[in-house]
């Protein structure tokens, strides 16, 4: 009798401590995960802000040995490459999402597209880079800004397709039926009713896809290639912010390291600001009615 009480106590003590140990472990792992995030941001702010100045935004890189200089060409180059990428990725992605949600519900084909898009999302970006290299750069025989744009544009498509579909699925069927009931052609109902209603969400999705490719370096290594001078011609090798950060980070010069930190800070700030701005605007409903 006493023994069973004793084992009962031991067991409950064991269960009690196991419970607390695992609670502690869960809390501890959360702290451990947040630590590098905080460390990265503190370092970025500390190192980046101290090297950020007006010249960074207005000058092109100085030759090795001269201090100063900036990344103006890389910022402009990134802008051009991302514009090309968006021009390719966003329309195709939105159209694909429209098909999945408005025409393809419950169809095998739509399921296959959905699955392939998810799988394509996981293909390493460097593989995208060498494929586009083989397609465009090998044939044109030179690196170019637009080949970088094509590589990033292709990478945007799966994300935009999936977010567009998801956002369109939240549009109530009653609205579509009301439009169709008024005799509006089906395509017009999709464009002016479904897409318009879901537009805040779709714009957010596009911005997320944009932010994802904005920081991509690997696909640009063999397509846009980078350029130490001013170039706004998409048919020529073009500088891009992530590429420049990479080149400067692995260089042996302190001056370039400082520029790399400043570049990383600008890149992160651009990504964060664009994403949170769009999220804020979308949540406030200001974009509603924008087509």
């Amino acid at each position: 009798m006493r023994d069973s009480i004793k084992t009962g106590r031991v067991r409950s003590a064991w269960r009690w401590s196991a419970n607390h140990v695992f609670t502690l472990l869960a809390v501890g792992s959360t702290v451990l995960v947040l630590a590098p995030l905080v460390a990265i941001f503190i370092y970025l702010l500390y190192k980046g802000a101290s090297s950020l100045n007006w010249a960074f935004f207005t000058q092109i890189p100085k030759p090795v040995g001269e201090s100063g200089g900036g990344m103006a060409n890389a910022i402009v180059g990134s802008g051009i490459i991302l514009a090309i990428a968006s021009a390719i990725g966003i329309p195709i992605g939105i159209a694909g999402g429209v098909y999945l949600s408005e025409y393809g519900r419950g169809r095998m084909l739509a399921n296959a597209v959905r699955f392939t898009a998810d799988v394509l999302n996981g293909v390493p970006s460097i593989v995208m880079g060498i494929s586009v290299y083989a397609l465009i750069v090998l044939k044109a025989k030179h690196f170019s800004g637009y080949s970088g744009g094509v590589a990033l544009g292709i990478m945007m498509i799966p994300t935009v397709i999936r977010t567009t579909e998801e956002m369109l699925l939240t549009v109530p069927s009653a609205i579509r039926e009301a439009a169709l009931g008024l005799g509006v052609p089906a395509w017009r109902a999709v464009v002016s009713v479904s897409l318009k209603t879901a537009s805040p969400g779709i714009i957010t999705g596009c911005m997320l896809a944009f932010a994802r490719v904005a920081g991509e370096t690997a696909p640009l290594l063999f397509t846009a290639f980078g350029n130490a001078f001013w170039s706004t011609n998409p048919n020529q090798p073009m500088a891009a912010l992530p590429l420049q950060i990479y080149v400067y980070a692995i260089s042996p010069y302190d001056d370039w390291h400082r520029l790399a930190w400043a570049g990383a800070l600008v890149l992160i700030a651009m990504i964060m600001v664009s994403v949170s701005l769009v999220r804020y605007v979308a949540s406030r409903g200001i974009l509603k009615g924008a087509s």
């Binding site: 460390a39 990265i40 920081g215 950060i245 890149l267 964060m272």
Partner: peptide, 17 residues
Amino acid sequence: LLAAIPSVVYGLWAVFV
């Protein structure tokens, strides 16, 4: 947010920290 940080920035942080 950890997922939104570009790979190259992780690399930069890794190299110097």
